[in-house]
Amino acid sequence: MHKLIPTLIMLNVFIFFLCLSLGSSSIGFYDVIDILNGVADDNTKAIILDYRMPRIITSMLVGSALATAGCAMQALFRNPLADPYVLGISSGASVGAAIVILIGIATTLNILFAAFISSLLTAFVVYKLGETKVGLPIYTLLLAGVAMASFLSGVTSLLVYLAGKDMHQVIFWIMGGFWTANWLKAEFIIIPIVASIIYVLINAWNLNAILMGEEHALSVGINVESFKKKIIGSASLLTSSAVAVSGIIGFVGIIIPHAMRLIVGENHRTLIPTTILFGAAFMPLVDLIARTATDGEIPVGIITALLGAPFFIYLLKRAKV
């Protein structure tokens, strides 16, 4: 196990309590201690346990899901610019959410389901479009993803245009954030995300082989075609789950794996666990800024971009590539 892993686990615990203790209300760290001691009042309990806690857990799950999916896609496509959205999943989710909003049945649960189903459906269609007689050439898949994403972006723009007074709702959803987080959402995504993360984690070794190229992976006995399907399946499930509860949060899927790659190297046996943990630590922290920096809420996707890009450039310079 890499020496960074215990540090990252401790960082996660620290950030968890930090985020529980900070917020727009004056409830703080001592109130968290009170809850642990069972002496807190109902209002405090409600804010911490029913509002902050599910929000933190959701953001941790989403952060690790996007980071893991990004890392797996970069290995599979052998392309540093691949991210969780290469298969058009984000555009698919936007269309689903926009339709639900447009036809006026936009409950939290409906948007969640619509986004989840439409994004998974998009991934499946892209997969089918990319498939050829000789298997699943990775570049065909990439191009099918790009084509599908631009088509669905067009559809989303059309829907936004047609949405009229509901326009802001769609745009806000697309910008991404955790302000609607609750236990229901956290419970909805916890199983697909944890299961997919475990799958990627135990296949970390095979991802090393894939990184060498498909022929090399085959030559060490990996059934490449079937492995590709499974990795694409888990990455799609991770991304769809994340997008369904939090909208489209960019950059996390690229920046977290690359930051870890620069620190621990290419070996996926250490890269995957550190990426999962760093993703889980990074997302609630950014969300903390989103909900405390101003009186209102800043969409979290804006902050990931503003914060993530300079950090990434710092790492690049430090590594003297």
Binding site: L211, L218, G221, G265
Partner: peptide, 29 residues
């Protein structure tokens, strides 16, 4: 299956990979 074949046959494809993996990780594959 491929795994069983790979135990009997060592196949080295033509093109070398481009990767930042460490040498030991590649040999371990």
């Amino acid at each position: 299956n491929f795994k069983e074949i790979a135990r009997k046959i060592g196949y080295l494809p033509q093109e070398n990979p481009e990767t930042n993996l460490k040498v030991v990780d590649i040999v371990l594959l």
